[in-house]
Design a binder for these strands. Structure first.
Lengths: 289, 289
DNA sequence: ACCACCCTATAGATTTAGCTTATACCGAAG
DNA sequence: CTTCGGTATAAGCTAAATCTATAGGGTGGT
């Protein structure tokens, strides 16, 4: 049994004559005639009686019709879904990400991405960057976002790099500067990330290169926490200009020199082929980060 | 999208390699290879990545697989049902019949007929013979059984004719006879059908031809009622030897001469082609009546 | 009665899916 | 470095589905 035969049969049952069915299917009348003859032969069912030069469906045809329509609709649904998968409207996107990005920026971007893709299932799992990396190897996720550096890098990794900016409270004397350097921050109370963080290490190097005193008054795990401390007047700080942007309301951001690099990585599965959808979203992220 | 492509895809997804799938489908490996390549091209989905000379299904393939299986099962169900329709295991058999036959004989025969045909829907509607005839013209039934004669006969009518037998209570003097004639019943109390019935007319003719006195002590609408009256000792009677047989327990049946004909007709729809099932059952009935 | 019109069936030619066999290629394992 | 298990490509075949052209059957109007 072929799909084409069922299509011809359905159209013929609905519209009554072969000539009309042929028109609707944009084929010639003999094509319908022989296709139906084949269907009758293959199913062993007499579907129509030729009566007065016209066709009359048999009771068997009516019974068969119900099933034929059901099968056709299943096939048509399969076609539709193939298209949805192809255009990224159907699928699932399970993303593992570190805290700062998964709190605000990532969900906003995912929601935007999903807006034009109706059937999408979304999942966001928040873990620290090293756990994120480990989850990916167990194949549980379509995409992961981690901060660099990682203990062991992956082949399927795309790095996004930012230059951090200095953040000061509104009205702070340094808020007027075009660029801020360690010299400007000599002895100024400073909110930093933890000592183990690469940001900490880069800052320490920068201050020592300038011979300035780095007066660290607070250490935090996340930029977002640091933002809040700066906003509360603890001192000045440093922050990445994209991921942490949502937390910098009422703060002034200024370029910092020398460049303090903040790097995050998009990781795709290595064992298994990443889904088209994951690739698309990775591309979307790179454009919006 | 063709059914064959989905079959190949399903087998390949389940068994992992093209070589194995080809074996299971009893075709060559290149056949699978090109069929899958076509499916990928037509759906626009990359279903497998060729990795290390082996195939690895993509996430898209897994999503598509679910739908492909659904569609295939619908098509396979359609094939199965075509076969059931062809072998008469599926369908409906709505039969209109007159009272005597629909009380006992017809349901027994229908049950027997349906025993080997699992999916059958049965309907029995009981009406008097003339109503039965009229119901058939409105296309509501697959088969009708009516007593003859009818007001206007039909082309699509098969007549079954019986010679009625005389029924007497057990121990009645006439119970020993080989054949009973009107001469034997001269003045004997007799239970007959109603005056309008052809049986009544035939009996009246027979008695007058023999010059015997026909002593009708009761008239009934149905043979079954007459049987009960005879069994109760009202007199003797006449009955058809098949349809009314279930009602003649504890009665003795003897051939009657001259022949009293009892005729029933099987009517098939005229406007519309009768279903194969109706034809089969009509044939079955003719053999068992 | 006959012709026009509508419908279906058949014949012969063409295209293409799906199949075959033969063969090349590729990676892993001995 | 060869063998083995697997996949892809090429060339050729068959059958399904399509086309055009044409025949034939019914119905209704003139």
């Amino acid at each position: 049994m072929r799909i084409r035969q069922l299509e011809c049969f359905r159209t013929l049952m609905i519209h009554g004559t072969m000539t009309r069915a042929a028109e609707l299917l944009s084929i010639s009348q003999p094509a319908i005639s022989s296709t139906i003859a084949n269907l009758e032969h293959e199913t062993g069912l007499k579907l129509f009686v030729r009566k007065g030069g016209r066709l009359q469906p048999t009771p068997e045809a009516r019974l068969f019709f119900v099933e034929a329509v059901r099968a056709l609709e299943a096939v048509e649904k399969t076609n539709r879904i193939a298209k949805e998968i192809r255009t990224g409207k159907r699928g699932h996107l399970a993303i593992a990400a570190y805290a700062s990005i998964s709190i605000n920026l990532l969900p906003r971007l995912m929601a935007e991405f999903a807006k034009e893709r109706s059937g999408l299932e979304l999942k966001i799992i928040t873990r620290n960057s090293q756990s994120v990396r480990e989850l990916m190897t167990t194949q549980q996720f379509d995409l992961a976002i981690a901060e660099l550096p990682l203990d062991y890098p992956t082949s399927n990794m795309q790095v996004i790099s930012y230059e951090c900016q200095c953040m000061v409270p509104i009205g702070h004397p340094l808020a007027e500067r075009e660029v801020i350097t360690p010299a400007d921050l000599d002895g100024v109370p400073f909110v930093s990330l933890f000592k183990g963080d690469p940001i900490y290490q880069q800052l320490a190097l920068a201050f020592s290169a300038y011979g300035s005193a780095w007066n660290v008054v607070a250490e935090t795990e996340f930029f977002s926490t640091a933002c809040e401390l700066v906003r509360s007047g603890m001192g000045v700080g440093i922050v990445d200009p994209v991921v942490s942007l949502p937390f910098t309301r009422d703060l002034v951001l200024k370029p910092f020199s020398p460049a303090i690099h903040y790097q995050i990585a998009l990781l795709l599965p290595t064992q298994e082929e990443p889904s088209q959808l994951a690739r698309e979203f990775a591309h979307y992220l790179k454009q919006h980060l």
